[in-house]
């Protein structure tokens, strides 16, 4: 099924590619200056308040994903990682910027093309419970998209579902269950299986292993690795677990309050991080004999509602200088593949 699936995914991509032929070295996906904002207040309270009415959840973020690449997104909770994923799926309409897949800007895509695109792009949602219909059994939830998009002949649907569940570490006996009858980690595996049955070319996996015990987690991470190496699937992997990110990802982007602050090849990021926030984040991982008492304090954080103009990390940054107050630093390439947004990176 996986072989067949992968060829199918390739043919889907080919359909998009027809629109604009591209060579294999161009990225699969290019996000440019993506800005997604949400309304904080309406009507009277908006008129009366002095603060801003909008929250920029994703603030002019740019990055690329190559074919067969696993890009990790890590960072502050609430920094916009899920919002980026949902914008790529076009569940959120960006305020500005572009998301180009195989030469086509999906932010301008019509309904029919969008349907085709969504079949080839799958998201494993951070909250699996709300992404599954509570009135449908696991079987129905997995069958429906397969039949709708005619992914395989109806006679093979059941076999395909069983195989996807098994590979995701869940016995097919759970097919008859409703979502509320499953444990957190079992639901998470259903969500993964559902995404994989579709043989996607690109998967946005939002914290897909956070609710799994370490043994099952190992199984799922190995599965993702196989899908990537054998079939060249591209993955955006959102996680708070830095060790997981290091194991699976080729490159990692670090987010802080709506901004991408650093992006680099995985080993370079872990061994030579440059942004002070990245350093703080990495400082908390893998320390031998780590105890709570020595842990650092989050301290005063950036307040997105107070509309600061300077660097988002200013309030917490141990390296800040006056210039940092003036504007958020632009993204700068310091080495091939290593970009950073910090005025003072040379000092670190």
């Amino acid at each position: 099924m996986w072989e067949e699936g992968a060829t199918f995914a390739a043919s889907c991509m080919a359909m998009v590619e027809k629109a604009a032929p591209v060579d294999k070295n161009t990225p699969l996906l290019s996000v440019r200056d993506l800005l997604v904002r949400f309304k904080l207040r309406d009507g009277l309270s908006a008129a009366l308040s002095r603060g801003p009415t909008y929250l920029k959840a994703v603030d002019e973020v740019s990055f690329d994903i190559g074919r067969g690449e696993v890009l990790g997104l890590v960072g502050e909770s609430g920094s916009g990682k899920t919002t980026i994923g949902k914008a790529i799926l076009r569940l959120y309409e960006p305020q500005s910027g572009s998301i180009v897949v195989n030469g086509v800007d999906i932010t301008r895509m019509g309904d029919r093309a969008l349907k085709r695109y969504r079949r080839d792009l799958q998201m494993v949602f951070q909250d699996p419970l709300s992404s599954l219909n509570p009135r449908h059994t696991v079987r129905t939830s997995l069958r429906t998209p397969l039949l709708l998009h005619k992914i395989c002949p109806p006679s093979e649907v059941e076999k395909r579902i069983d195989e996807a569940l098994t590979r995701s570490g869940l016995s097919p006996v759970f097919k008859a269950r409703y979502p509320h009858e499953l444990s957190g980690g079992q639901l998470q595996r259903v969500a993964i299986a559902r995404a994989l049955t579709m043989s996607p070319g690109l998967v946005v996996a939002d914290e897909p292993v956070s609710k799994l015990d370490v043994s099952v987690r190992a199984q799922i991470l190995n599965l993702f690795k196989d899908l990537q190496t054998k079939f060249g699937i591209s993955i955006i992997f959102i996680t708070h677990d830095l060790r997981v990110a290091r194991y699976l990802c080729h490159r990692i982007g670090v987010m802080y309050f709506g901004k991408l602050v650093e992006i680099a090849p995985v080993e370079e990021l872990f061994t030579a991080p440059k942004h002070p926030y990245t350093k703080a984040l990495l400082g908390t991982v893998g320390a031998e004999g780590e105890s709570l008492d020595g842990a650092q304090v989050a301290g005063e954080a950036f307040n997105p509602a107070a509309d600061t103009t300077g660097c988002r990390y200013y309030a917490r940054c141990p390296m800040r200088v006056d210039r940092c107050k003036t504007a958020h630093p632009p993204m700068e390439t310091i080495k091939s593949g290593h970009d950073i947004a910090c005025y003072e990176w040379r000092r670190s």
């Binding site: 890590v74 909770s77 914290e207 708070h240 703080a280 709570l292 842990a295 304090v297």
Partner: peptide, 20 residues
């Protein structure tokens, strides 16, 4: 029940200290 799965390391430590 897995109270900090959705949190980055830094915030997680902060919450654990509140529990402590």
């Amino acid at each position: 029940d897995e109270p900090t799965t959705n949190l980055d390391n830094i915030v997680e430590r902060q919450i654990l200290r509140l529990f402590r």
